[in-house]
């Protein structure tokens, strides 16, 4: 009996060989990959959707997850720089090495906003390649779906037809949704907002919201009292509609600002699973476009 359990244990990874086993860093990439790959792929998502994407905890269990992946898809734009490199190195799996054919960096395929001209750590923990939260522009989701389709075909040309059909189904559905979100957000063009960290940059860009300040004084640096006092004056003067707050930072400073200025706080999910209601890509943007 015991022996049989052991055999089952070691057979388990083999049974996955039937499908492509694709590791991805964030839940939204997992959802896109599953949509395009359908039943030809299995996805393993490394990060949790309700925690900070910059500070994913590099638990050894993630190494075990990446160990037998056939491919790895990452967000890129240095979003994973603080946690992924040692996992790749320790997984001892040549298929997920950077520059291998089965490694995909999505940031190489979209245009990044806010690329800094000068990079200096006195300016905080800036992303030198530009703002990496590009998936929050729903127009980019369509581009990324196409990139993932091409990637899957490049490593598994046998199922090309499946991937193309899934992409075309998704693309048709998504275009309809894009139209709906555009109408929903039309009245919000030009509205001023405050954020904790500039996570919503691409969403703002897509729908014409104007981010006037962040609660953190510099990227990656926790709130300071001096900066918070400055924010109170700024909010009183410019009258932004609301604070679009991520779900993973403490809202303590935001609550203080609300108390002093009466500004509204709106929690904005950044990925699937960030809030219970956000289960898939459509519900993510349904939620975001309805939040204001």
């Amino acid at each position: 009996m015991k022996k049989r359990i052991y055999i089952l244990l070691f057979m388990f990874p083999l049974s996955l060989l039937a499908n492509l086993n694709i590791a991805v860093t964030y839940p939204y990439i997992g959802a896109l990959t599953k949509t395009i790959g359908g039943d030809k792929v299995d996805t393993v998502v490394l990060a949790k959707g309700n925690w900070d994407p910059h500070f994913v905890i590099p638990r050894p269990s993630l190494i075990a997850k990446a160990r037998n992946a056939d491919a790895l898809i990452i967000n890129g734009g240095q979003l994973e720089i603080g946690w992924l490199p040692p996992l790749i190195s320790r997984a001892s799996n040549p298929k997920i090495n950077i520059n291998s054919k089965t490694f995909l960096d999505l940031s190489r395929h979209v245009e990044l906003l806010q690329k800094p001209l000068n990079v200096d750590r006195a300016g905080g923990d800036v992303h030198p390649d530009g703002n990496p939260h590009f998936h929050l522009d729903p127009n980019n989701i369509l581009i990324l779906a196409g990139v993932i389709k091409d990637f899957l075909i490049s490593i598994d040309s046998e199922n090309k037809g499946v991937y193309e059909k899934n992409f075309s189904d998704f693309s048709g559905m998504w275009k309809v949704k894009l139209g709906m979100w555009k109408i929903k957000m039309a009245n919000n063009r030009g509205v001023k907002i405050v954020q904790y960290h500039n996570v919503m940059a691409y969403f703002n860009h897509a729908y014409g919201l104007i981010s006037i300040a962040t609660i953190e004084p510099l990227p990656g640096i926790p709130p300071s009292s001096r900066h918070t006092i400055h924010l109170i004056d700024l909010i009183k003067e410019q009258k932004p509609c609301c604070i679009l707050h991520d779900v993973y930072h403490s809202t303590k400073t935001a609550e203080f600002l609300k108390e002093k200025t009466g500004i509204k706080i709106i929690l904005m999910p950044h990925d699937l699973g960030a809030l219970d209601e956000v289960e898939d890509l459509v519900s993510l943007f349904d939620y975001l476009s309805g939040a204001l």
Binding site: L9, P13, A64
Partner: peptide
Amino acid sequence: LQWLVPTPWYM
């Protein structure tokens, strides 16, 4: 020389 043992957990 290190080997990641193919167990469901990390070994």
